[in-house]
Design a protein around this nucleic acid. Structure first.
Lengths: 229, 229
DNA sequence: GAACGATTGGAGTGTCAACTCCAAAATGGA
DNA sequence: TCCATTTTGGAGTTGACACTCCAATCGTTC
């Protein structure tokens, strides 16, 4: 997992020399994979993502991923140099999934009703899965942020991709005059993401959506105090 | 780690039969340990706590703990039946540590200046450790909540022990008349803990205290809108 | 001071998981 | 059809790590 740094210590992963993946996770400009190959690659990522979501990174074995994806070891290592690269692909995949699951609401967060719909969507999602699982990237962040520099950067990017549309929506509300001109919409957007992450963690631990709902509602209520007029 | 359930699957831990630890983590009513023994036990817990804080549960090996605590394998297994029990002791230890580090402020959260002092304390703590480490129990929660029933219960308790004094402080503010009588102080207390957890996670990932500060400030600002008269 | 239990030392043991390797099959372009 | 390249199969290697075991001390009590 940590090719360059000597950060992780009690881990199982073997230390291969520097991964070539300075290029990034997605095979930039197609790295000689056929359509079939890319499909297999996607299947591996999806399987890994499910397992990581359910059990965390450390508890997800390569063999588990193989079984779930229906591929052999050589296939997996044909598409990913090591577990670390696979996990980074999972992070990107999960970020895409989060944004996709919240679209189109997420891109229209520029009214109070929309913000409430979004809150309901998030709470309902957790309700449906009985509070299991936490945040698909938040959980990974808590596990890897400290010991895996690359993963942390990817995760920070993921959070940013999540925060951006929230920020944009609140910004539009202010520009349009729904919020007072002096409203710090960037701070409010960040506060929403913070409440979301903390809410998901506590909701997962307590198996109860109250923390998520209360956290989001509190910030939403605060945003309403900036309503113009 | 998971003696009873078959939850964790890709793990390394061996499956011994049911742990006897229905008794709980702390040796209830002294389980025939001398003072010296208890000291050794504490040394093990402290060492494990540091390693878990720095690298997470899965990446913390029993041998690492041995080295750091300066004990042999037989000693460690003399005081803990397995890694799971050790980790549960770590959770309790970290919860105690959190409360101790925030006392006495935490027990006097019944005025706006006190709330601000608390916010500063939390932000300064993260600043001092350069945003490394996240929350001592929050990180563990994200890692174990899904796969370890016992740990999740302990962690929920830990969060509750944290939330209680916040709740109490805000309640006193309302009773005293600092906050309007209809203020839902329980919800606000929960929102503070949520903001704290989310803030710590994002602060850890971004290596920047802005999320923590912004999250807490937003909830504090909202609490101020309930100020009476 | 002897006996008993608590504490400690440290060399094992068995299992598991990340990763490797070689060669076979499929694929696709000419 | 032929050749190069990609894709796949699966057995094997290496090391790590949770946990065990037996015996040696230390400490306390009577």
């Amino acid at each position: 997992m940590n090719p360059t740094t000597a950060e992780q210590q009690g881990s199982h992963e073997r230390r291969t020399g520097e991964t070539n993946a300075a290029s990034g996770v997605t095979p930039t400009a197609a790295r000689k994979f056929t359509a079939k190959g890319l499909a297999t690659r996607q299947r591996i990522i999806a399987a890994a993502a499910e397992l990581v979501f359910a059990h965390g990174v450390a508890s997800t074995g390569i063999e588990d991923v193989q079984r779930r994806a229906g591929v052999s070891a050589s296939q997996l290592y044909h598409y990913f140099t090591d577990k670390d690269e696979l996990i980074r692909a999972v992070i990107a995949h999960q970020t895409d999934g989060i944004l996709a699951a919240q679209r189109p609401v997420l891109d229209q967060l520029d009214s109070f009703p929309a913000l409430e719909r979004w809150r309901d969507l998030l709470v309902d999602m957790q309700e449906r899965r009985h509070c299991a699982g936490g945040c698909p990237i938040g959980s990974i962040a808590a596990e890897l942020a400290e010991d895996n520099l690359r993963a942390r950067a990817d995760l920070a990017d993921g959070f940013e991709r999540w925060e951006a549309p929230i920020r944009a929506g609140l910004g539009r509300m202010r520009d349009r005059g729904d919020l007072r001109p002096d409203t710090d919409t960037d701070a409010l957007a960040l506060a929403l993401l913070v409440a979301l992450q903390g809410g998901l963690l506590l909701t997962q631990t307590r198996r109860n959506t109250t923390p998520l709902r209360t956290g989001l509602d509190t910030v939403l209520a605060h945003i309403r105090t900036y309503a113009a007029g």
